[in-house]
C-alpha cells in the first residue's frame, strides 16, 4: 500500500519548476484570456443579457440539451455492451473493431456528415429503402442525434473499454462462485468498478455531442427549432445583423453549461467510495 509516490509526495525539483513555469503560465493565460473576454463582453454589452431569452436562443438551447442527452442515452445503451465486449471478448478481428470505433474520433466531422448523408440520404445506401417506408432522416431532429451519435459515441466506448480492461476479471469469477449470474455480476461488480471511466466517458461523449457542428450542418442542416443546435445558432447569429453580440450571448450559455457539467462530474468522481487498493 506504500508506493514511492505517496511516500515522497508530489515533490518537485525547484530548478525544474522555474524552467517549466513560463510555458505553463503562457498556456494558462492563453486559455483564460478569451474566456474572461467573453464574460467581460457580455457584462459590458447590455444587449447580450436581453438576447438570452429570445425564442431563437431558447429553441437552440432546448434542442441542444434534448439531442445531446438523447445521444448520450443511446450511446450508453449501445456503447456500454460494446466497450465490455471489446475489453473482454477474445474475438477474431478485435483490432479491426477497435479501429472502427476509433475512426470517427480522428475523422473530420464534415466527412462524417457527408458519409451519413450518402448512407441515410434519400438516394443513400439505406436511405432509399427507409424513404420507401416513409422514413426520411436527413434534415430532421433525428439526423441531429445520429450525427452526434456518430462522432461522440467513440469517446464513450474507448474510455469505458479502458475502464473495463482495468477491472480484474478475478472479481467477476469470485462473484460467480458467490451465486451471481454474469449479468448481475456486471451490474454489481464490473460496472461500479469501472465507474470513473464510465463517468468521464459519458462526459466526453455528452460534451462532444453538445459541441457537434460539422456533421450536423451537412447531414441535418440548420433549421431553427428542428436542427439548429447551439453551435449552429452561434454561426447563424454571427452572420446575422446582431453580429458578435448574438454570438457572445449563445457562447456564454454554452460556456456556463460546460463549466457546470465539469464541476458536477468532478464532485461525482471524488465521491467514488475509494479508488485505492
Amino acid at each position: 500500500m506504500t508506493n514511492p509516490a505517496a511516500r515522497y509526495g508530489r515533490s518537485l525539483t525547484p530548478s525544474l519548476a522555474s524552467v517549466f513555469a513560463t510555458p505553463a503560465l503562457l498556456l494558462a493565460l492563453f486559455v483564460a484570456v478569451p474566456l474572461v473576454a467573453l464574460a467581460a463582453r457580455s457584462v459590458n454589452d447590455g444587449e447580450v443579457l436581453d438576447r438570452l431569452t429570445t425564442p431563437f436562443v431558447l429553441h437552440a438551447l432546448r434542442l441542444s440539451l434534448v439531442t445531446s442527452t438523447l445521444t448520450l442515452g443511446l450511446a450508453l445503451v449501445l456503447g456500454v455492451p460494446a466497450a465490455y465486449l471489446l475489453a473482454r471478448a477474445r474475438i477474431p478481428g478485435r483490432r479491426m473493431l477497435v479501429l472502427l470505433v476509433e475512426l470517427p474520433m480522428v475523422l473530420p466531422p464534415t466527412v462524417a456528415g457527408v458519409a451519413l448523408l450518402v448512407a441515410f440520404g434519400r438516394r443513400g445506401l439505406i436511405g432509399g429503402w427507409l424513404a420507401d417506408r416513409g422514413l426520411e432522416i436527413p434534415f430532421t431532429t433525428t439526423a441531429v442525434v445520429l450525427a452526434q451519435l456518430f462522432v461522440a459515441t467513440p469517446f464513450l466506448v474507448r474510455t469505458l473499454q479502458a475502464g473495463f480492461e482495468s477491472v480484474d476479471s478475478l472479481y467477476e469469477r469470485v462473484s460467480a462462485t458467490l451465486g451471481m449470474s454474469p449479468l448481475r455480476t456486471f451490474w454489481r461488480v464490473t460496472l461500479p468498478l469501472a465507474r470513473p471511466a464510465l463517468l468521464s466517458g459519458a462526459v466526453l461523449c455528452w460534451t462532444r455531442a453538445l459541441s457537434e457542428l460539422g456533421a450536423t450542418l451537412i447531414f441535418a442542416g440548420s433549421f431553427e427549432g428542428r436542427t439548429e443546435t447551439m453551435p449552429l445558432a452561434i454561426i447563424t447569429a454571427f452572420e446575422s445583423s446582431a453580429g458578435l453580440s448574438g454570438a457572445v450571448a449563445l457562447s456564454l450559455i454554452l460556456l456556463a453549461v460546460a463549466l457546470a457539467l465539469l464541476l458536477v462530474v468532478r464532485v461525482a468522481i471524488r465521491q467514488q467510495p475509494l479508488d485505492a487498493a
Binding site: 480484474d168 478475478l170 472479481y171 469469477r173 469470485v174 462473484s175 460467480a176 462462485t177 458467490l178 451465486g179 451471481m180 449470474s181 448481475r184 454489481r188 461488480v189 461500479p192 468498478l193 465507474r195 467514488q272 467510495p273 475509494l274 485505492a276 487498493a277
Partner: peptide
C-alpha cells in the same frame, strides 16, 4: 459456478473494493 453452492476463497482474496466489509459478506445473499 453460480449454481455450485461452494464457498471459495481465492489466494488474492478479491474482496470487492467498492463494497464495505458487510456488503462483501452479504454479497451472495441477494
Amino acid at each position: 459456478p453460480q449454481r455450485r453452492r461452494l464457498g471459495y476463497v481465492v489466494q488474492q482474496l478479491a474482496l470487492f473494493p467498492h463494497l464495505s466489509a458487510s456488503a462483501n459478506i452479504g454479497y451472495g445473499l441477494g
